[in-house]
Design a binder for these strands. Sequence first.
DNA 1: CTGAAAGCGCTAACAT
DNA 2: ATGTTAGCGCTTTCAG
Lengths: 342, 342
Amino acid sequence: MANKSIRLSDIAKKLDVSTVTVSKALRDHPDISSQTKKLIISVANEMGYTPNFMARNLSSRKSNTIGVVVPKIAHFFFGSIIESIYDVAFRNNYEIILTVSQEDAERERKHIQTLLSMKVDGILISISQETKDYSIFETVKARGVPIVFMDRIPKIKNIDTVFVDDRGGAFKAVEHAIKLGYTKIGHFAGYSEINIGRERYLGFEDAMKKHNLPVNQEWVFHGGFGEKYGYDSFMKLYKENNLPDLIFTVTYPVALGIYMAASEVNMKIPEDIDVICFGDAKVQKFLSPPLSCVTQPTNLISERSMEVLLNKIKNPEDKKSQNIEIPTELMLRGTCISYNKA
Amino acid sequence: MANKSIRLSDIAKKLDVSTVTVSKALRDHPDISSQTKKLIISVANEMGYTPNFMARNLSSRKSNTIGVVVPKIAHFFFGSIIESIYDVAFRNNYEIILTVSQEDAERERKHIQTLLSMKVDGILISISQETKDYSIFETVKARGVPIVFMDRIPKIKNIDTVFVDDRGGAFKAVEHAIKLGYTKIGHFAGYSEINIGRERYLGFEDAMKKHNLPVNQEWVFHGGFGEKYGYDSFMKLYKENNLPDLIFTVTYPVALGIYMAASEVNMKIPEDIDVICFGDAKVQKFLSPPLSCVTQPTNLISERSMEVLLNKIKNPEDKKSQNIEIPTELMLRGTCISYNKA
DNA sequence: CTGAAAGCGCTAACAT
DNA sequence: ATGTTAGCGCTTTCAG
């Protein structure tokens, strides 16, 4: 049917002006008198004009679009991050191209290529847990496309980053447990190749050291960020009859895995085994007992990241890299609130 | 620095062929001999060529991009839907432009406009709970852009839809409760303007009618899909000392609200008040007691939706509209599994 | 199999 | 304040 979208030139013809005038009027260019502007805008609306972004972007060489790369979507942390990125973008009249690496480095690489092809004005990324080859980030830099790393950060010099105080947060949680009276503390850690895994482990170690507690490596696992890892690690220890009194987990899904395993073997949390984790999620307050944790203010992460990125987009000459640390808080609920061991 | 991306013509010049040849070779066009193809591809890689999608799309008039509009992201249902849409898209070499209406009809409208401007090849949408004006969907149709409605569906003729058997699922849950022995059954329903609210309510009614049970309207609320609504409705009934024995909720967050409220007033689930909900989420099995529900197979929804859409994109002349119903299942966990009332 | 010409719809730079 | 010219980087005819 009316399958054909109308163009600037259609409006121009109708009004007997040039396409340039229409183009300028529609973009509120100061060149055009407010009279003709009004006229043109109303006619454009009447005719149901929608600009062709492809053409616009091609000739203007900017897309008003930001590319985002995350490892997962259906995960509370990333879900919240993404949602607030969309909010900030909307407020600033930017479009978002969201891509998902599914924790796959190759897929991540392809996505970044695509974003470059789409001529995004900037990129926001939380790298996958598998990403080891950082050369693509050099390519991005070489292209002059600003990129901000959020939360999961590669070891590269001179990049813009926004991250959580992982080490300090982990320290806070573990020290709190120690002060409660816990001494047998385990840690289900994440991949140590990635900053969040490494730093949280260090925070754990810091607290133990400070209070002269030995780190029992049998109680420390390095593995991942998911439920299954928590479940399996717990079960291993359980079968060896070698459970600590409290486990600090690198993420809340890992803690969830412990909840599952514990209930399966009829151990009660927090009486028989206590838990505290890094990372907040809505679930936690509905658990029984409600799970205590170190919070990561997701909206702060997205907002600051967008801020840094938009700033870099607007001031391409500004080469100074920003590194913003977001503070954490201890959120005590039904676990890790008292020491009740023999 | 090397801020300038290289173009087809750069490769062409280097190889002393025409840009057309390069363009064709890179797109694996049958015109070109596999010899020259190989050469060109390797040189392109060497030079770090990335195609400019803007230019490509402008001249080819297709974007290999699908626009998606959802009401929310940080919600288990939509999170899963989106994640699997991304998977299917990736497999089919499509890019996704995801937009979020935040349950705001005006914002939704704007997003659809933007997607049209971006010349997406098709649109996948789950409309906001506020959407009443359907004119924009006419615009989309007039533009010849295929659109598939998922889960939340407007009342329009001749559209492609993929939806869950809401009425049948709700019926199943409530009938199960009745067979257990429940007679005092309440329903915290959603907005009845939207299909999922309306249909689930009807399913509830169907079951009650079939078993000659009166629907007590004091136990039926119409309001929303969130936790607060569940909490508030429960509290209202509690204060009036007028609680039913079991509540069927339109979504799991509403049930979560009941969990919160119940624990606040020291009522035990399922002993004092029993609950079952529509919609599955990972949380539920970690709750205490684990929450029973009617499942919605999210991956089926996305996969079928994408199937229908891709088919429409490939066969624009196919005007027959498809309406696919996805079946549900009863997932019994720790609630609504026995009748233990006076 | 290869290439020359034309143009997608728009905007930037430069007139007028 | 408005219009002219040129071109963004690519693909699509259509000729060879």
